[in-house]
Design a protein around this nucleic acid. Structure first.
Lengths: 130, 130
DNA sequence: TTTAACCTTCCCATCATGGGAGGGTCAAGC
DNA sequence: GCTTGACCCTCCCATGATGGGAAGGTTAAA
């Protein structure tokens, strides 16, 4: 299988597949005589795994660990759970930070009359200590 | 005032002040004979404004618009409000995306027993179509 | 044989920020 | 006046994940 087909069936772009190879997230693939990368079904499985982990917001470094656990028949599920929970905590923090921003902004926007006059609590709020 | 003092009192690093100057977000400052940038109180005000807008998650491009509205005594508060509401909508989208990730991950992690055994619903969930 | 659709590598861009090298300036204390 | 330490300057490089595009080779079908 060439890289284009793998890209389509894994939903990981060819660009990214090459990149993942270059940073050692996936193994270097064998090549044809003319230099084309050759893949098999198991590579598609791995790339789908990576893609889903990305969709869940894991970083490539975290995915590197997930992949090595995935590959390891001796793994303890506790190790996987630890990774997942650390990531959940991280997501919670980011959600909280964004929610704080949102709430502050909603408060400011609510008090802005939003007409032709220049007076604006949003700009005032930004200019003044919070 | 030298750049270090401005950085301290505005909570914007000297590195960033130079960067903001280089991308035209703030005006180029006058220099001493030896090339040191010279600032005044009004520059500190502007940088604090920028810093607070960053803290609320506005991009530098959005801040560029906010600053020009801030500078404009003829502005309509409706224009500011429009910017703020667009940003709120953007924050809402990001919060929703992160919350979806979080919920999916929590579901997977909950069903993982998290012990020494290798069997793990989290890895299984990542490997299988969602 | 031509052509279109592949593939290759290499460099550059994003966004906001920081690190660090290599070197100049300034003020205080001796 | 000289040393020293704390400033300042510019320039280049790095981050993380992804994409764009150039310049050129390969393949399969018409």
């Amino acid at each position: 299988m060439n890289i284009g087909k793998v890209a389509k069936s894994s939903s990981v772009s060819a660009k990214m597949i090459r990149h993942y190879e270059s940073i050692g997230l996936i193994r270097t693939s064998p090549r044809t005589l003319s230099g084309y990368r050759q893949y098999h079904d198991r590579d598609v499985h791995l790339l789908r795994f990576i893609r889903r982990a990305r969709d869940l917001g894991f970083s490539l470094e975290q995915i590197r660990q997930l992949v090595s656990l995935w590959d390891d028949p001796e793994r303890a599920s506790a190790d996987v759970k630890r990774l997942a929970q650390a990531h959940i905590a991280d997501l919670d923090q980011r959600i909280a930070a964004l929610t704080d921003m949102r709430d502050t902004l909603v408060t400011l926007a609510t008090s802005c009359h939003g007409d032709h006059r220049p007076d604006c609590p949003i700009l005032h709020g930004l200019a003044t200590a919070s």
